[in-house]
């Protein structure tokens, strides 16, 4: 007769991760966004072959489109897709009704989201970096995408548990806070994930093609605080998560 084994403390659950990944790739919202990274590569190729200076197309296509728009938007759709969508359609109840620590559930979903976001944005951006003839820029963009994926994913996972409209609020953060305010108000830059990503890319790439506005130590410390803090909060929220009936 099957009986549950002694409880093991685990941080990652392959079954949760596998189902989460399959569900993510099955969502139309996610598949619609996959052309975005392709667009970055296409534009990079077009502008370069049209004879635009490397400095100019890297700034507009790789930074302006890739890091400012594609990275946060993909992270938003993936981060809310691995948890928020399952809350919406009720499938999360299956995972919640298992003797799994909530840490294990959140970290498994976090790992899937970070992995998918890094692959779908970091790799195309790195290829664009190679096109500019700077292998170090390519590495910088890959590392930067990974660092950005960590912080963005933690934020969007937490939003999925705090609000019924995580995509809307996440979009507001990306567009209004990062896009608008930090370009006007210098002070908000220290609370902008985009600025951390830019700093990391700049330091790793060591290239004239990108620049940064805040120090590396500050950027890394903030990414650490965002990632760990938001994830811990998300775990605690999931412990107290209420599963409502349809008619209650």
């Amino acid at each position: 007769m099957p009986t549950a084994q002694a409880r093991r403390f685990a941080l990652f659950n392959p079954t949760v991760a596998a189902i989460t990944t399959r569900a993510l790739f099955g969502r139309r919202r996610f598949l619609l966004l996959l052309p975005l990274p392709v667009l970055v590569l296409g534009l990079a190729f077009l502008t370069k072959s049209a004879g635009v200076a490397d400095r100019d197309w890297v700034e507009t296509v790789v930074e302006g489109l890739g890091l400012v728009v594609v990275l946060p938007i993909i992270a938003l759709i993936v981060g809310t897709g691995v948890l928020g969508s399952e809350i919406d359609d009720g499938t999360l109840a299956h995972v919640l009704a298992k003797p799994l620590s909530r840490t294990e559930i959140v970290l498994s979903k976090f790992a899937v989201a970070v992995g998918v976001t890094t692959l779908t944005t970091g790799v195309p951006l790195a290829l664009a970096g190679l096109m500019a003839g700077e292998p170090r820029l390519a590495v910088g963009l890959l590392v930067g995408s990974f660092v950005g994926a960590l912080a963005y994913t933690a934020l969007f996972l937490l939003l999925s548990l705090l609000t019924r409209r995580p995509v809307l609020i996440g979009l507001a953060y990306v567009l209004i806070w990062e896009g608008l305010l930090s370009s006007i108000l210098q002070g908000t830059r220290v609370l902008s994930i985009y600025q951390y990503v830019r700093t990391v890319v700049d330091r790793v790439a060591d290239s004239d093609l990108v620049s940064s506005a805040i120090g590396l130590n500050v950027a890394l410390a903030m990414v650490f605080i965002f990632t760990v803090g938001f994830t811990l909060l998300a775990i605690d929220r999931l412990r107290s998560f209420s599963v409502q009936g349809e008619t209650s």
Binding site: P2, A4, R7, R8, K98
Partner: peptide, 13 residues
Amino acid sequence: ASAKLHRLPDPAA
């Protein structure tokens, strides 16, 4: 998957 999430010794059975 449900059996595996319960960490049963023989999930398939």
